[in-house]
Nucleic acid binder design. Sequence first.
RNA 1: CGGGAUGUGGCUCAGUUUGGUAGAGCGCUGUGUUUGGGACGCAGAGGCCCUAGGUUCGAAUCCUAGUAUCCCGACCA
Length: 484
Amino acid sequence: MKGQTKEKDHLKDSESVLTDIALNAQLADYSPVKGCMVIRPYGYAIWENIKAILDKMIKDTGHENAYFPMLIPESFLQKEAEHVEGFAPECAVVTHAGGKELTEKYVLRPTSETIINHMFAKWISSYRDLPLKINQWANVVRWEMRTRLFLRTTEFLWQEGHTCHASFDEAQEETLLMLSKYKELLEEHLAVPVHTGMKTESEKFAGAHSTYSIEALMRDGKALQAGTSHNLAQNFAKAFETKFTTENNQQDFAYQTSWGVSTRLIGAVIMGHHDEIGLILPPRIAPYQVVIVPILKKNDENILVLTEAKKIIEELKALNISYKFDDRDNISQGIKFNEYEQKGVPIRLVVGPKDLENGFVEIHRRDTKSKEKDVPRAGIAERLKSLLDTIQKDLLQRALDYRKEHTQTVKNLDELEDVLNNKTGFARAMWNGDVALEALLKERFKASIRCIPDQRELDAKIIPCIFSGIVYQNNKEILIAKAY
RNA sequence: CGGGAUGUGGCUCAGUUUGGUAGAGCGCUGUGUUUGGGACGCAGAGGCCCUAGGUUCGAAUCCUAGUAUCCCGACCA
């Protein structure tokens, strides 16, 4: 009892919500190395589910998986000026191996544009070799000063897509296509609504021509960049001489893209769906969608209960519902209930002797915390299947409603301050594009321009630039928020 | 890299002020009684007290240095 109260109080403290949920739900644990985490089986299962969905999307859009090495010659990073400047401070470097100091140092990949371009240059010679569309699932290392479980760890897992095209427009099309796939992944499967849009110069990827991102809103009112897609144009191709012969027998540099999402998505799910008890998982990525808890009594009734539970399991399997059957007899059901609630299992199905006698079972919905007794045993699998769909939809709707409540249009800095400090969430505004004013946002409000959204909602002829107060039709619409 | 906190059985911590050779709760093992929302009894196992020096007859405790992790800022997916 004491433990329960303590945990609940803990969760109210928003600063430790992420840590508490990740640890309590056994998604991850701290490693002996600063900033690194161990992804535990339950957390990794979520990643595997996300990975399976996205991997199919990637393949369905014509990409192939490959694997490039983790060690990159240090000189590679230096070939692209902006790139080295952006990544040098956060690179871990291998200086010794085989008991000797290395002549050329190796960088643990912070991202793979350089080594991949080195290979692309060898593989591409003609426009007939294009487009070349590669993806890899890998780990990367970025020596961040401050880390948080899932949201920012020293080593993390991700996928990075790298493509080469014969024209800028084709690369641009690819950049936006993958951005839209990310949006689909987040909204349809993780139930996390996102804004798509372009990053400002100061926020774009080091070495890119332009960067697009998906921006999600967490339940604490902060924004999270949940994925990025870059049009690299010819920046890396020029640095690595990734050239091809055109149809007209001219030499041209390849037009490239890169795009990635990481285990940060699990952080997005945690911070996007939770309550005072703990995690709430969307059914489509839950390691198990239903947990079956039998009520055991150490007598003949158990045989009935266990036999019936096994039958239900067969029915769930037939409908492709993933499940966990917890028949441990040394733990009371109360503890089990609490454990699976903290883990965010979408539905709990309780199978007990008294209910079964009357042909009933009991269902508990994690997202609404509602319990339904006397649910007919007959047709339970179909009932659960449709309930899972409902939960998936409701979670997205809940997040959409939350985002709507926490998005305001602001016309001046006072209104912005009110949103950032009191209402929290996104502020939608107009901006004249002045970089100095963007920097002021960070200094004065500790907020940033999350993106120039694709979905415009403001009228540039009416809403003035939030900094200058001037109305001008070429002002850009922006989304401002405090971010992770 | 600054600021703060903390390193004691698997976990959460007490003990440190005032040195005397280590405790509690939970968990774990066995066993019995329980069982429809966090049960209880009995019997057990389990600890280089972060590391290295120093002071002392004697250090978890005092001194010095180091180290690690967490939290808060500057940097970032």
